[in-house]
Computed example of a mutant assay.
Amino acid sequence: MKFVDSASIVIAAGDGGNGCVSFRREKFVPKGGPDGGDGGRGGHVWLKTNRQLTTLLDFKYKKKYIADRGVHGQGARKTGRDGADIVIQVPCGTLVRNAETQEVIADLTGEEQEFLIARGGKGGKGNQHFATPTRQAPRFAEPGQKGEALVLDLELKLMADVGLVGFPNAGKSTLISVISAAKPKIADYPFTTLVPNLGIVRYEEYKSFVMADIPGIIEGASEGRGLGLQFLRHIERTKILAVLVSADSPDITAEYKTLLGELEKFDEGLLNKPRIAVITKMDIASEDLEIPLLEEGVKVLPISSVSGHGLKELKDELWKEVSARERSAEPSEEGLGNDAAG
């Protein structure tokens, strides 16, 4: 399936039905009072997350979503039927902006999360509502209100626990293919990975976490060089970053600093995430290679995805960091009680 992480769509909620002008007409009641019914509400437009979706591809083919209008009111005080709502399915991690103002309307990260994006217009009142002692036969009713309409920009930021960052050919795709069920394209040339890949990493018997592999970053990615800038958004939601540098790099320390520099230029907040430095391809490292201390307080783990060296230690460390972030994000019991009361 083709990966698409941005799209623009037009949505319009349904208009409300018009109120009805009608008077009772029954045998032996020659001058019945007004009995015009109300119009039905126009259909709403909802967004709902679907964990089975991983791309915005569908929105490249269908760009307009228009809900039904409400049915007009009828005589005998009959209210028109409400217009049918539309529910638009989007992937978890979809950011929704008003295309005109670029204001963020919603950030949909939860599973089966629903958001009312456009309200249908209210139905108009029938003439029965406008009768007064001095105006007993009103010959007018209220029109239905217009439904809300707007153009949306959708942006997908993948939901993952661990984000892999590195230069092209740093071994990210090989790593994710070995420790998860993901099957990315792997080859010995730059930019083999052209789209983000997600993999579920099984840990011990009943535990797991999600890892994201994005296309390789090159120096200048934050200014638009290469593919890195286009996909860096997909590591903004990750709990941890694993910064990969190949053991055959001519200068491991300089490459590591360059990667951090590109992350900082794109979004300074990325450097606030916990990170682990990973030296890959130890199976082809020179015998005299010394693993440098790249950054104070950051663990450096040498691995080989080919031989399996260091992979258990890497999974142990990643799980420890992921579970620590999950515990810190859990709401307190006091907070849960306040939410329930509200």
Rank of each mutant, 00 (worst) to 15 (best):
G337R: 08
A277Y: 15
V300P: 11
G120W: 08
Y189H: 13
G269V: 14
Y256A: 02
L164E: 02
P196A: 04
A131W: 10
K63M: 10
A160P: 03
C20W: 13
G224L: 11
L244R: 14
E326K: 05
Y189F: 14
N127P: 13
I88S: 14
S307F: 06
L194V: 14
I279Y: 06
K62N: 11
R69I: 01
D316W: 05
D58Y: 03
G335I: 11
K78S: 03
W319H: 05
T49D: 06
R202M: 14
L318T: 00
V96G: 10
W46H: 14
I176M: 01
K172C: 07
K48S: 14
S173V: 13
K257P: 00
A76N: 11
K62Y: 09
L301V: 15
T258G: 04
F231P: 08
G337M: 01
V162S: 05
N18T: 08
E290C: 12
M282F: 11
V21I: 15
S222E: 10
S323I: 05
I303V: 12
A67H: 12
W46F: 15
V201I: 12
S286H: 14
T94E: 01
A84C: 09
G216H: 04
G73W: 03
R97D: 05
R97T: 06
T238P: 00
I291T: 14
A106E: 11
F23C: 03
N197Y: 13
E326F: 07
G16F: 00
S305G: 15
S208Y: 09
P250C: 00
C92F: 00
G43M: 04
G120F: 09
S173F: 14
V243Y: 14
V29N: 08
L116Y: 12
G220S: 05
A329Q: 11
F3G: 02
E326I: 06
S304M: 08
A141T: 07
R237W: 04
V29W: 08
G171N: 15
D58R: 03
R275Q: 12
L263S: 03
S249R: 01
V245H: 11
V96M: 09
E296D: 13
